[in-house]
């Protein structure tokens, strides 16, 4: 074949929309061990089966969403692994496509609960839950429920480490929504919740963490004794050498913290198959056991220690993500004016 005919042939193929050649797929992932498990459990099986190549973009959702929005017609990303709050932005700005169950057969094995929060524009792929982590040597009698936890701060029973307003995804759910929920206050009336938080801050027994790892440093250095954290991270830290750390979900339960996957609009259609690969039971099991987070395919069976630690999606509390997203501007503003002083 001459170069000319080859060019012509490929043009025709592209025109017909059925490129037979290997494609290059661009997907996103969080960094570190998460990325390595992602490559081993999802990318490798996909590449082996499809013959396509995969570029893994490590980074943060804000970066990806902006990169897609800036190049909406020819996005640099095809499959978007995302967090809940930025997923809502991607849906709002029409950066992602509605899911088509016929293109993702494995979606049938994912319970409804993992799909509804994304309004048909994606699914949860794995999740952790927020609870309380504490140092056993310093807190002998950890509070049994969330209300007691906040009262204990104000009473001076311990110094607590709480996520500050600038930690996206977490503070709105694990701290703010949690308070609205246990205090039984509608989301659009933040005054009482902020007053409660201000009271806790003024007691002098709160230190905020504005970066995920500050929490562990604060607990280890004695700056704090107890605090809101996620199961997966807490267990990793305990297994990694912080023996004194323990973790549990106070009543009425932990708060879910999901990672989700979405298909970028105008991105390669090979993305559907990649998402299907990500939802495969075997691959999901591989990922869960590697990173210590629960996954969504109902056929997955966990190995120890995850088997005894992983929360059930029916036991954790699901925040009102849409309501939070709507109230965020007000909450941030209120926080700045009251708690953040």
């Amino acid at each position: 074949m001459t170069i000319k005919t080859r060019l012509l042939a490929s043009t025709l193929l592209i025109a017909a929309g059925t490129t037979a050649q290997a494609e290059n797929l661009s997907v996103t992932a969080f960094g570190g061990s998460w990325e390595q498990a992602f490559r081993t459990c999802y990318v490798e099986p996909y590449v082996a089966a499809s013959g396509n190549t995969v570029d893994v973009n490590i980074g943060s959702p804000t970066q990806w969403v902006n990169q897609i929005a800036a190049n909406a017609d020819n996005p640099p990303i095809d499959v978007l692994v995302n967090l809940m709050d930025t997923a809502a932005i991607a849906i709002n700005d029409e950066l992602v496509e509605p899911f088509d169950a016929t293109k993702i057969p494995n979606l049938a094995k994912v319970p409804e609960a993992f799909q509804t929060p994304l309004q048909g524009y994606g699914t949860v792929i794995n999740f952790g839950a927020a609870g309380l982590g504490y140092m056993e040597s310093r807190v002998s009698n950890p509070p049994q429920d969330w209300t007691a936890f906040f009262d204990g701060i104000i009473a001076g029973d311990y110094v607590a480490s709480l996520p500050g307003i600038n930690v996206g995804s977490t503070t709105p759910t694990a701290l703010l929504w949690n308070l609205f929920d246990i205090m039984e206050i509608p989301l659009d009336q933040p005054e009482e919740v902020m007053a409660k938080l201000s009271e806790a801050v003024e007691s002098g027994n709160v230190i905020f963490f504005n970066d995920m790892n500050q929490y562990l440093t604060q607990l280890q250095s004695g700056e704090a004794d107890i605090g809101i954290y996620w199961d997966g991270r807490a267990w990793t830290a305990k297994d990694g050498g912080i023996d004194d750390l323990n973790f549990y979900y106070p009543q009425p339960g932990g708060i879910i913290s999901p990672s989700v996957v979405q298909k970028v609009a105008n991105g390669s259609d090979a993305g559907w198959d990649f998402i299907n690969t990500m939802l495969d039971a075997e691959n999901q099991g591989c990922f869960a056991n590697a990173v210590g987070y629960a996954v969504v395919n109902s056929e997955v069976e966990y190995a120890e220690p995850l088997a005894s630690r992983a929360p059930s999606y029916q036991d954790v509390r699901w925040p009102d993500f849409a309501g939070i997203s709507e109230q965020m501007p007000t909450w941030v503003d209120q926080w700045n004016r009251t708690v953040g002083r």
Partner: peptide
């Protein structure tokens, strides 16, 4: 750098941020 990060355009601070957000060692 954050906004320009991709497989060929990752600078070290961006990778470090991504790494430590999930793993602090």
């Amino acid at each position: 750098s954050f906004f320009f990060a991709g497989p060929d355009t990752n600078t070290l601070p961006v990778v470090m941020l991504a790494y430590q957000q999930n793993q602090f060692d």
